Deep mutational scan, measured.
Amino acid sequence: TTVHVNGVTYHFPNPEEAKKFVDRVVKEAGLTVEVKGNQWDVE
């Protein structure tokens, strides 16, 4: 699973890890998340 955060790419072994990361980032920074298949874009 690939997560893009403001142009930076993070790779995770599974969607659960990616979701935990995204949830944390979104809570801390108040960002928006767009999910496209296995790819997350966070802005």
Rank of each mutant, 00 (worst) to 15 (best):
P15S: 11
T2H: 11
V8Q: 07
E43I: 15
Q39M: 11
T9W: 11
T9I: 15
L31S: 08
G37E: 10
K27H: 08
V3W: 00
K20P: 00
W40D: 10
V25Q: 04
V8Y: 07
F21I: 01
L31Q: 08
G37K: 08
N14F: 02
V42T: 13
W40E: 10
G7P: 00
E43T: 13
E17Y: 02
E17A: 09
E16W: 06
T1A: 07
P15G: 06
V33C: 14
V25I: 15
Q39N: 13
K19I: 05
N6G: 07
P13C: 14
T32C: 14
V5C: 14
L31N: 10
N14P: 00
Q39C: 15
G7M: 01
D23H: 02
E34C: 15
H4G: 02
F21V: 01
A18L: 04
V8W: 05
K36N: 13
R24H: 09
Q39K: 09
K19M: 10
T9S: 10
K36C: 15
E17W: 02
V22H: 05
N6T: 01
T9D: 14
T1Q: 04
N38F: 05
Y10W: 03
L31M: 12
D23C: 12
K19R: 10
P13I: 09
E43Y: 10
H4R: 14
G7D: 03
A29N: 10
G37D: 13
F21W: 05
W40N: 11
N38W: 03
F12W: 01
E17G: 02
E28P: 07
V5M: 10
E28N: 10
G37R: 04
L31G: 12
P13L: 12
V33Y: 04
E17H: 03
N38E: 12
V42A: 09
E17M: 06
A29M: 14
T32W: 02
K20H: 07
H11Q: 04
G7I: 06
P13E: 14
K36M: 11
T32Y: 03
K20T: 04
E34P: 07
R24W: 14
V26S: 12
G37W: 09
W40L: 11
N14R: 00
N6P: 02
E43K: 10
E28T: 09
F12L: 00
N14T: 13
K19Y: 05
L31H: 09
E34L: 07
K27T: 07
N6Y: 05
T1C: 15
N6E: 04
F21P: 00
N6C: 15
V8P: 01
G37C: 14
K20Y: 04
D23K: 03
V22M: 11
K27L: 10
H4E: 10
P13N: 11
F21T: 00
N38R: 03
T1H: 06
Q39F: 13
E17Q: 05
W40V: 12
F12M: 00
V8L: 06
L31Y: 11
K36E: 12
V35A: 09
K19C: 13
T32D: 06
T9C: 15
V3P: 00
V35Y: 06
V33E: 07
T32K: 10
A18Y: 02
V8G: 03
V8D: 05
F21A: 00
G30S: 07
A18F: 03
E43W: 03
V5W: 15
T9K: 11
T1S: 05
V3E: 00
G7W: 01
A18I: 02
K19N: 05
N14L: 02
G37V: 12
T9Q: 09
V42G: 12
V22Y: 14
V22N: 02
E28I: 10
T9H: 13
K27E: 05
G7N: 03
